[in-house]
Design a protein around this nucleic acid. Structure first.
Length: 572
DNA sequence: GCCGTTTTCGGCCCGACTGTTTTCAGTCG
């Protein structure tokens, strides 16, 4: 029986484990780095890399050459990379998980295993408790205590939960505003992954310049909502808030604020690629400035714009800094003009009290949308709450509110369920009378999700597919979403003129960034929708726009930057 | 292992922190 092709995530896991085991075995560091770079590339590729490798095209991806492509073919054909199988036979299974412990890198993990004969987490705990780790030079009582604390904190092998962008963004903004209002503050900015608007974060980074660094840091660690001060030094501090969010503040010299902001915004991959290209041109880039090898002088930059310009790039918006082609585009002057929050003209997916889980009525939702500066609102209540004549009753209310709020438009939509057999749970006669039809998977995610979505796309009544994979970022079991073949869905959507939404719910952000980019490149129009179940949730549009920007989308590629009249003309 | 406007060979980002090293290796971001 043919094996299902490994997903990109599964391939990346194999390459990362190969890197970890090779490192524990003391192999060449540059080859290990190549495995890790390739793993990151595979994870951030929108289409199946296993499929590409079988076609001999994976080596066209940056960071993947003939050798790693051959390894991916092995994974696709035999289930596992042969070099990985070989190393797994050499290194006891749990030793690689030692790497997750604080202060334990490959050298230390290898010595714990080889010199102490410790091969499992249980043995490691026992060894630490008995004070045997300090027998190794370089390890002392402090290291033992840290390892024991980490073992007690959470089981090895599990990863710590990441916070959602939608939760972190308001917090980091509050902190930036509070710090900026302090008399010692000069410049204050968000940084890190939250500034790049990544869908999840590990910690929230803020950097600042100040006339009195100590005063600003002292103010920071005493902000309301701070539960615990983890670190408090001369130039930086780390606190944990009552909601359990980790916040970092760094106070930096003003003359290199631009370099430091760029450095701490990342991503790591973007910065490494930027620095490697600079090295080839005789420049050494660090967080403090750019050293010119020829003259020996170091240039400093107060703004990111000046730094990028000095290195020969157009300014790169933080959302694009993932080493996904942005450096080449910025050098060649071909960066896209990204969609902005103010470009949205209306809402194409939201709910009212006609849905049992809706909090606000149609008129309240419409008035709130109008206050946002929108010009239309499509009400897409759940189909299963609109049976037994309720659908027509809802249409009457929509028509009434529409008349009352003109020229603002309120339109008849629906969110229909894609059933297990791929059909919709709304009769065609009703669908034909709707202004806008969203079709979504809500159940049986593991039952042929691709075929069901493709069937919905083929329906002449379906305008848009809702939250394509059904992923829920805060639920580990569902964070990956249904195993939808996005490449096929995008092709079908492009062929039929069906839209694929970016659902801006903080827990969804579905399409994910690389898939929305794939859709945009294929010519699919991508609406940014909130799926709001309340007036307040209409504000999630900002998160969806951020996701669209991470997907390189321009205003024209985002469907609801158009008026309703323009959208209606685009319908089939 | 990857890669190329110095190079198909010989490079490969850069700096801070930490613990126990008495001069820096290992780890981390």
């Amino acid at each position: 029986m043919a094996l299902a092709l490994p997903s990109n995530d599964a391939l990346a896991v194999q390459l990362e484990l190969l890197a970890d085991l090779s490192e524990i075995l003391g192999e060449d560091g540059f080859r290990i780095r190549a495995y890790r770079t390739a793993a990151a590339r595979v994870r951030e590729t929108a289409i199946s890399v296993a499929q590409l490798a079988l076609q001999g095209q994976a080596k066209e991806l940056p960071g993947i050459g003939r050798t790693i492509e051959a390894k991916i073919v092995e994974a696709a054909e035999q289930g596992e990379i042969a070099a990985l199988a070989k190393r797994r036979a050499e290194v006891p299974a749990e030793v690689a998980s030692f790497l997750q412990l604080p202060g334990v890198g490959p050298r230390t993990a290898a010595r714990i295993w080889r010199e102490l004969g410790v091969t499992t987490t249980a043995e490691l705990r026992a060894a630490a408790e008995q004070g045997r780790l300090r027998e190794l030079s370089g390890l002392g009582a402090t290291s033992e205590a840290k390892i024991l604390a980490a073992l007690a904190d959470r089981p090895v092998g599990t990863t710590p939960a990441r916070g959602l962008l939608g939760r972190g963004l308001p917090v980091v903004r509050e902190v930036v505003a509070a710090l900026a209002a302090h008399p010692a503050a000069v410049r204050v900015s968000e940084a890190g992954s939250i500034r790049r608007r990544r869908e999840t974060f590990r910690d929230l980074d803020v950097i600042a310049t100040a006339t009195d660094a100590a005063a600003l840091i002292a103010f920071f660690v005493e902000l309301p909502g701070v539960l615990q001060v983890v670190a408090h030094g001369d130039t930086k501090a780390t606190v944990v808030t009552q909601q359990g969010l980790r916040l970092d503040l760094r106070v930096v010299p003003p003359d290199c604020f631009g370099s430091l902001l760029q450095h701490f915004t990342g991503s790591k991959e973007h910065n490494i690629a930027l620095r490697e290209e600079a090295v080839r041109r005789g420049l050494s880039v660090s967080e403090y400035g750019v050293a010119v090898a020829e003259s020996g002088e170091t240039r400093t930059f107060e703004t990111e714009e000046e730094l990028y310009a000095f290195l020969g790039y157009a300014f790169i918006p933080p959302e694009l800094r993932e080493n996904a082609g942005e450096l080449e585009a910025a050098r060649g002057g071909t960066l896209p003009a990204l969609v902005e929050a103010g470009d949205l003209r209306g809402e194409l997916h939201c709910h009212s009290t006609w849905s049992a889980d809706g909090k606000d009525g149609i008129e309240d939702m419409a008035r709130a949308a109008r206050r946002n500066g929108y010009r239309f609102l499509v009400v897409t209540d759940h189909s299963h709450y609109l049976r037994d004549g309720r659908l027509h009753a809802q249409w009457e209310e929509i028509a009434e509110v529409d008349r009352r709020l003109r020229p603002f438009r309120v339109l008849r939509g629906i969110e229909a369920n894609i059933k297990a057999d791929g059909s919709l749970d709304v009769p065609d006669d009703d669908l034909a009378e709707l202004d806008w039809v969203v079709a979504s998977l809500h159940t049986s995610f593991d039952r042929s999700p691709t075929e069901r979505v493709l069937a919905a796309i083929e329906s002449p009544h379906v305008d848009c597919i809702g939250h394509l994979t059904g992923r829920r970022l805060s639920r580990p079991a569902r964070a990956a979403g249904a195993p939808v073949d996005v490449e096929r869905v995008v092709a079908a959507a492009a062929a039929t003129g069906t839209a694929l939404e970016i659902n801006a719910q903080p827990d969804r952000l579905d399409l994910r960034d690389v898939h929305a980019r794939l859709a945009g490149e294929a010519g699919v129009l991508v609406p940014v929708t909130t799926d709001a179940h309340s007036v307040a949730a209409l504000a999630y549009a900002e998160l969806g726009v951020a996701q669209a920007r991470r997907a390189w989308l321009t205003r024209d590629q985002v469907l609801n930057t158009r008026t309703w009249a323009q959208i209606a003309r685009l319908r089939r």
